[in-house]
């Protein structure tokens, strides 16, 4: 029963997973470019940015069509509404990876001693994105909760890196523009962690019907 609808939902799932892996790849490449100075990787991220944007529009279109044609309820409605929300976060993750790549190109291979810490922070953020998408694929609430908790680790990295940059500025061992670029990269990574957290929260909503931090069924009551 509802074979065609099930096929379309399967296709929606597949597209979300594909978009998710594109995002993972974008941050991984941006981080590699940052830590190794491989500018080719950075250019690749920038060139792929539009693909992620296009995927967001395609998935959005599919969701709208499903809402119109199938008038879904219960788990189907939760899947489609969660999809509409989480692709926005994925698109932002892609944008931020692109922004990081842009800075790397601008820095043109320049490195600083805090780079290692930024690399660690980036790995943590990548893991959050990967796990949040895994949680979606496996409908795994526990993994989604782990992602939400992991956001604190990424936030801590940001504070450490910020303190490090402040020290560099105080020592006068770095120029202002470079210091700001490093801070921007750390901030983008911190935002990527936030978006992964949002994805994880929508996964929990999709599976349980309750969005963490909201009252039960707030969504359907317009609260």
């Amino acid at each position: 029963m509802r074979n065609r609808f099930d096929e379309q939902l399967f296709e929606l799932n597949r597209e979300i997973i594909e978009m998710g892996s594109m995002c993972e790849e974008a941050i991984a490449c941006a981080t590699k470019a940052l830590t190794t100075g491989d500018l080719e990787q950075a250019v690749k991220v920038i060139n792929n940015g539009f693909v992620i944007d296009q995927m967001e529009r395609d998935i959005e279109g599919r969701c709208m069509k499903l809402l119109l044609h199938q008038q879904p309820v219960a788990r189907d409605l939760r899947l489609i509404s969660a999809a509409l929300k989480l692709i926005k976060d994925m698109e932002r993750i892609g944008d931020q990876a692109e922004d990081i790549a842009g800075i790397v190109v601008f820095l043109n291979g320049r490195k600083a001693k805090d780079m290692e810490l930024i690399g660690e922070m980036a790995n943590e953020a990548i893991e959050m994105v990967t796990s949040s998408i895994d949680a979606f694929v496996k409908k795994d609430v526990e993994l989604a909760e782990k992602v939400i908790a992991q956001d604190d680790v990424v936030d801590d990295y940001f504070s450490q890196i910020k303190d490090g940059i402040i020290t560099l500025i105080a020592e006068d061992s770095v120029d202002g523009e470079f210091a700001l670029d490093l801070l921007m990269i750390a901030k983008y990574l911190e935002r990527i962690g936030d978006h992964a957290t949002n994805i994880a929260e929508w996964v929990i909503y999709y599976v349980t019907g309750t969005h963490p931090g909201r009252f039960k069924n707030d969504m359907v009551r317009g609260g």
Partner: peptide, 22 residues
């Protein structure tokens, strides 16, 4: 109604309202 159509408790309810009954 909002609960039944957003997060039904019984699988049979979910299967029926989502059109997958049977």
């Amino acid at each position: 109604t909002d609960d039944i159509f957003s997060q039904p408790k019984d699988k049979r309810t979910e299967d029926y309202i989502t059109g997958r009954f049977g």
